[in-house]
Design a protein around this nucleic acid. Structure first.
Lengths: 96, 96
DNA sequence: TGAATACATGAGCAATTATTCATATATAAA
DNA sequence: TTTATATATGAATAATTGCTCATGTATTCA
């Protein structure tokens, strides 16, 4: 059934959050458990600034959440939907 | 587990195909069955050119396929993965 | 053949976006 | 307090993208 423009826009925003290589790699490491910004940056060979900018977008879409502990902020996937979408997409890419 | 850059790039391309309001609305009407370009354009209030450009992208990602019948080209969703990703995303947007 | 219709496509423009660089804020340690 | 560390963020820039407009190609009909 034809999507309303407003719904399609929100849905597009969700998929947009998953439409970048760097963000997907961030999600891929968070699938293994929470991790702080520096660790993520080191693992992905990105600057902390770039990672922080991307985490902001993922946060705004409620795909990840941050937990502050002293100077560190540990990020984790926010809900199971993300994981399902990610894994289903990966399945399509690998065997589709 | 950390995605390889090459895999994350392909996955990003898949989600990018779903990251636009117009393309999602095209997919939404194709969920009801195949439809030709002019009908899609009329239903979505887009030019045929714009629809054709978007269908090209969807075709290249193997998300839709076209079947030519005389002057008309009927498009349909290419596989069930698309439908699943779309519906799961929609669920997240509506109740997530 | 010639005109009309359906769709595809290239060029160009405006808008969006991912990154870098510089700087700000918060916490901890000296 | 001073210094260092971890993260966040604004501005600027380069690259990408969705659309329009013009045009090309295939098919049908007169």
């Amino acid at each position: 059934m034809l999507l309303k423009v407003s719904t399609s826009t929100r849905l597009a925003e969700l998929f947009s959050a998953l439409s970048d290589s760097s963000r997907l790699r961030i999600i891929s490491v968070l699938l293994d458990g929470e991790m702080n910004v520096s660790e993520i940056a080191a693992g992905l060979e990105m600057t902390e600034s770039a990672v922080s900018h991307q985490l902001r977008g993922l946060r705004q879409m409620n795909l990840v959440r941050g937990r502050k502990e002293g100077r560190l902020v540990f990020y984790a996937l926010d809900d199971d939907h993300v994981k399902k979408l990610y894994l289903m997409g990966l399945d399509h890419v690998k065997h589709g």
